[in-house]
Amino acid sequence: MAWEFLTVYWREMIRFVRFRTQLFASLLQPALWMAFFGVAMSSNLDRFASAIPAPAGVFSVDYLTFMAAGVIAMTTLFTSLFGGISLLFDKNWGLMREMLASPMPRTHIMLGVSLSGMTKSFVQVAIIMALGLLMGVRFFPGFSAARIALSILGIFAFVGVFSLGFLLFSSTISMRLESPEGLQGVITLLTLPLFFVSNALYPIQAFPPILQVLSIYNPLTHLVSGVRYFAIGSDFFAVGARYTSTTVDVLVSFAYLVVFASVMYFLARRTFQRAVVT
């Protein structure tokens, strides 16, 4: 039977629920972003944005709604990048030896940890969406119930693949590093460019060409595009720019994330198969 990764998943979820502070922090953090950054920025940006009216017939979106997709993406990014840290602790505290000395295939360790990280992201995303709707985020404008259900599925599919990619990346780093501080350093180094060179908080249309190119290769950009496509629609106007996307665009974004996650899977697998932990 090849279901042992569910065992690792089970343990990770016990830890998630049991570490109360971690649980609350991870749920509170996105809410705070929405409440402070979101409200502060939207009260400013919506004023400027009114100087550039939406073209006739194009649906206009306020900043909070625009940014909510960015907060979903950012939260998923942070949670996933930190997701591998439990492996680092397992390794340092000697707990990983129990798993490595068992007949369970080693890839199941990273699969279990990654699936639990994905679940955590799902919980966070659900909370952001619920909270956002309460705060006045206008997701799913005029959608039918069926379309809302489909959109939520679409959002979760994007979040799922994206988080898997970064969780596997985080697992690889955790297995190669010795200290949590090292992982922290790597993550800090990565999050800023990933987050700011993307369309999470503002349109990339006005970026200098180099940043535009970079942002197109940034997985975060594709996650945000996917979430906006499903949550807002295929043609809307926000922060002075018009966003149109076709089904093909969305599929390309999704495919890009799948490729990214696959590459990360193979990197992680290689690392795990070679890992020596005593």
């Binding site: 065992t7 089970w10 830890r15 707990l95 798993m99 369970m104």
Partner: peptide, 24 residues
Amino acid sequence: FQDDVLDRDLTVWETMEFHGRLYS
């Protein structure tokens, strides 16, 4: 193992259950 390699936040039963599931 030489050192106490137990997950501090699992219960005694969960520690055993986890191990048994690792070995299917």
